[in-house]
Amino acid sequence: MQFFFDHFFELTITGLALGSIYALVALGYTMVYGVLQLINFAHSEVFMYGTFSVVWVFYLFGAGADQSTGSLIGLLVASMIVAMVVSGGVALLLERVAYRPLLKKNSPKLVALISAIGASFALAEAMGLRDRIAGFLGLEGTLTKYVAGARDNRSLPTTITPDPLFKIGDYNVTTVDLLVIVMALLMMFALDRFVRRSRLGRGMRAVAQDPSSAALMGVNSTRVYQVTFLLGGLMAGVAATLYMIRIGTTRFDAGFILGVKAFTAAVLGGIGNLRGALVGGLVLGVAENWGSAIIGTEWKDVVAFVLLVVILLFRPTGLLGESLGKARA
């Protein structure tokens, strides 16, 4: 308990940074849920592919252990763009392969969930077996750097040293903390504007509220689904970059727990609600940090789930309520 009070500001700020990443991933869950009422179980893999893209971009440019600040920024920008493209692409693929055939047939939700679970397994394993797959293609030699040790942790080759910026309480807020939080907020702001203001955003809200009426009004629902998945993927790509900056290590199954957390964040804030995802992510990140400081790090995940259950019991629709459709323009 003493530890908690001594490190209150540190726990809170790092919790917010972690929560920002949850929130960005949560957006993917919340948008798909808002529009389709489906739990996009495979969204965690969309995120995971993003993290690997970041690592690979670093490899590709031959980044060493130490990089000057300028080149590091360049690398990070490049890897964020690549991560967004890759995650967006995987998300679109997911929509095309695992969801669209089911949506066309009006399948029950549970079936779509199973399809998503299957896609999630397949995507994660494809990453975990990338050495073997490269072997089949005879590319193992050329791609060694990228495919070796497919089932082990992968870290960024470059050490990102956070520089202290300014003090809040007795904690030195670092560049990394600030970068993660500000970047996440910016992306969310942009997304929020997009959904509220753009024509496609209006289409999304219309489909979320009433798919059949939206169709009657000429909204192309397939296009809306694609955009929804794509946006979720782009956000996951950003989240993946921030995650690699902050954590620095990924694995073929790194998506799973983070995905569960992000989904928890989405539900916490009120699923289907973009701002809810932000609030839920931040609350979850901070609560996890506080909770693990008070009762021990090993109970971190338990804190997250207990929080979820408690909130659902007292506020069944999450902190901000569920409303992609009702988001006011």
Partner: peptide
């Protein structure tokens, strides 16, 4: 090694 991969694909195909 490919068990889970095939399992995932099978689930997806079955669902579809």
């Amino acid at each position: 090694d490919f068990r889970v991969l095939f399992f995932g694909l099978a689930l997806m195909l079955l669902a579809i």
